[in-house]
Design a protein around this nucleic acid. Structure first.
Length: 646
RNA sequence: GCCAGUGUAGCUCAACGGUAGAGCGGCUGAUUUGUAAUCAGCAGGUUGUGGGUUCGAAUCCCACCGCUGGCUCCA
């Protein structure tokens, strides 16, 4: 057989060779280092014979992109084997054990056993043993009937169910020592080829994600080829915990949660409101510039509006209701119907379009208690919502405008982002032609702006295609925030019209869009993104004045007044504590600037500047300080202006 | 909602069948301090709620409530 290698060269090997044998043809060391292969684009075990005449082959080494698929898959099997050894083959029924983005998991049904985190240690120990045993991993195939029989024999009902659903004639199995599992692979050649792993958590998970099926016990773990990568990942988990907004938020005096009186509804404290108001001010300025007009619509509106909008049929489960005068009112879960009411309350000419209405709309949606999570998943939140009513021809320009606005906003926070475009779903409204046109318009916008995007085929809303923005925070975690959705349905349902130049009524198109998404959630993301150390323009307290002794308090007050006149947010710490103590407190509150005032400063009429980073810049003139900080704030700079100066 | 874990002072945690404790924070006083914790004293709790077992329950059992992780990633 002929084998084409990644460098383009061809070699001839015996028919039915394995990747390992082929590798040996090239070099012995390569054969030793390889952990798997990609054969004609398919992940392939190192020891699995290739039965095609002509193949392209790429060997997979530790550091390759495809490597985790091999060693994490194997790790899942090692874990399953360990669990079976510990709890007994008869009691353990296996679910599935796939690899996931940063690791792997396996679902088990263990008769009479409830796993807890403490059991993980025990399982890890057994896994280490299995790795030491360096068991050979062998692949074999059975016919469906044979496979079914074997799994029935082994009393593995979940596997039986899986096999029944497989359409192929043959089913593959992997065997390592006494452990055999239905699996499509790929796997390492032996259990000794991967060492660095850690089991992370146990949790419940429904069989096949269906809440009507039995709940299995899932163990999550992770594995890496290199020790340092594992350590780094564990550090990442630690760092994520350290930045958790649910801890930082109350600590920094931003917000608190009170699930006993208002589950899923955060309380914002003065400092939190400062940040939110800065976000709003920034947002308002940009929207005014971009030709939006701000509106405000009621929080509760009559049932009949929601019936007309379709929410009654499609969203009722998530809505809150209230009744008075024998009339049912709904707390709004979305802002669009309110905006439509405003649109309909006036005659609209084509000259008025595009009409851009924005609202910081407070919406409420019932979420199941189990999914609530800090500020990320709440029951009441403020959307930076807007609806653009325009003609079909204007769609492209309007979407471009939103994309530019989004870019400007995300850039300010230092977020990288990627974009996804969702196209027509099976169940949709409107003609395919209209969809086609709309999707092409969206594509043209993204292309013209040089924005890369992935297409989610058939993932659009039933009323129109959409663009979703996923931002990436400082730890590389993705968050879906902005969304731009074209809507052909609502204008139809509400019979929206505008008068065209031809003196005939036409139907406008609606664009729903939000950029922060929700202010609450965005604040949560920012807290974690900055680890609570907001850039100065957002910082609740921008400057902390620290007089060294009581005799400096008066001078401190004078400085404070000057800073306030310059519109800075300032606090003075006049408590009877040591300077170190007060510095420490300011540091823990992540206040960008500390001005330390003692005899020397009073004498020279200066301030001693300490940065949040710990840098002590010594005495500087107050005016110079104010001027620079103001420049930093106006520019909404991400790092301190004093950090950049040498 | 479901599964598992968990709930002790404002916060972080100890006590694990025999009188509920520490550090931080708070308050009071002393100290007047030069860049991440000065010292002393005081206050603070129906151990999430309700029931049960027991001579005795924070501790064991049951129910409820809250919180945390997960319930999308398909052999």
């Amino acid at each position: 057989m002929k084998v084409k290698l990644p460098d383009g060269s061809m070699i001839e090997v015996k028919d039915g060779s394995t990747p390992e044998q082929i590798a040996r043809e090239i070099s012995e060391s390569l054969a030793k280092r390889a952990i798997g292969a990609v054969v004609n684009g398919e992940l392939w075990d190192l020891t699995r014979p290739i039965d095609t005449e002509e193949v392209t082959l790429k060997l997979v080494l530790d550091k390759d992109e495809d490597a985790p698929e091999f060693y994490r898959h194997t790790m899942a099997h090692i874990m399953a084997q360990a669990v079976m050894r510990i709890y007994g083959k008869e009691r353990v029924k296996l679910g599935i054990g796939p690899t996931i983005e940063k690791g792997f998991y396996y679902d088990f049904d263990i008769e009479g056993v409830r796993l807890s985190e403490e059991d993980l240690e025990k399982i890890e120990k057994e896994m280490k043993k299995i790795i030491e045993e360096d068991l050979k991993i062998e692949r074999f195939e059975l016919s469906k009937e044979e496979a079914l029989e074997m799994m029935k024999e082994a009393n593995q009902p979940y596997k039986v169910e899986l096999i029944e659903e497989i359409t192929d004639e043959k089913v593959s199995f992997y065997k390592q020592g006494e452990f055999v599992d239905l699996c499509k692979g790929p796997h390492l050649p032996s259990t000794g080829r991967i060492k660095y792993f850690k089991l992370l958590s146990v949790s419940g998970a429904y069989w096949r994600g269906d809440e009507n099926r039995p709940m299995l016990q899932r163990i999550y773990g992770t594995a890496f080829a290199k020790k340092i990568d594992l350590e780094e990942y564990l550090k990442f988990i630690e760092e994520s915990k350290r930045r958790d907004h649910r801890r930082l938020g109350p600590q920094l005096g931003l917000f608190t949660l009170h699930p006993d009186v208002a589950p899923g509804l955060p309380f914002f404290h003065p400092k939190g409101m400062v940040v939110i108001n800065e976000l709003i001010e920034f947002w308002r300025g940009l929207h005014r510039e971009a030709g939006y007009e701000e509106i405000m619509t009621p929080l509760i509106m009559h049932e009949r509006l929601w019936r007309q909008s379709g929410h009654w049929d499609h969203f009722k489960e998530n809505m809150y209701f209230t009744e008075k005068d024998e009339q049912v009112y709904a707390v709004k879960p979305m802002n669009c119907p309110g905006h439509i009411i405003i649109y309909k309350s006036m005659p609209v000419s084509y000259r008025d379009l595009p009409l851009r209405m924005c609202e910081l709309g407070r919406v409420h949606r019932y979420e199941r208690s189990g999914v609530l999570h800090g500020l990320f998943r709440v029951r009441g939140f403020t959307q930076d919502d807007a609806h653009i009513f325009c003609t079909e021809e204007q769609i492209e320009d309007e979407v471009r405008g939103v994309a530019q606005l989004t870019d400007k906003i995300y850039r300010t926070f230092g977020f990288k982002y990627h974009v996804e475009l969702s196209t027509m779903p099976e169940d949709h409204m409107g003609s395919e032609e209209t969809w086609e046109k709309a999707i092409n318009a969206l594509k043209r916008v993204l292309d013209s702006m040089d924005i890369d995007y992935v297409i989610n085929e058939g993932e659009g809303a039933f009323y129109g295609p959409k663009i979703d923005y996923h931002i990436e925070d400082s730890l590389g975690r993705p968050w879906q925030c902005a969304t731009i959705q074209l809507d052909f349905m609502m204008p139809e349902r509400f019979d929206l019209k505008y008068m065209g130049p031809d003196n005939v009524e036409h139907r406008p198109v609606m664009i729903h869009r939000a950029i922060y998404g929700s202010l609450e959630r965005f604040l949560g993301i920012l807290i974690e993104h900055f680890a609570g150390a907001f850039p100065t323009w957002l910082a609740p307290v921008q400057v902390m004045i620290i007089p060294i002794a009581d005799r400096h308090n008066e001078y401190a007050q004078k400085i404070k007044v000057k800073l306030e006149e310059a519109n800075l947010r300032v606090d003075v710490d006049t408590r009877s504590h040591t300077t170190s103590y007060k510095v420490r407190e300011a540091q823990m509150m992540k206040i960008p600037y500390m001005l330390i005032l003692g005899d020397r400063e009073m004498e020279h009429g200066t301030v001693a500047l300490r940065l949040r980073s710990g840098k002590d810049l010594g005495q500087i003139k107050l005016d110079a300080f104010i001027e620079n900080v103001k420049k930093e704030i106006e520019g909404r700079m991400l790092t301190s202006i004093f950090e950049t100066e040498e």
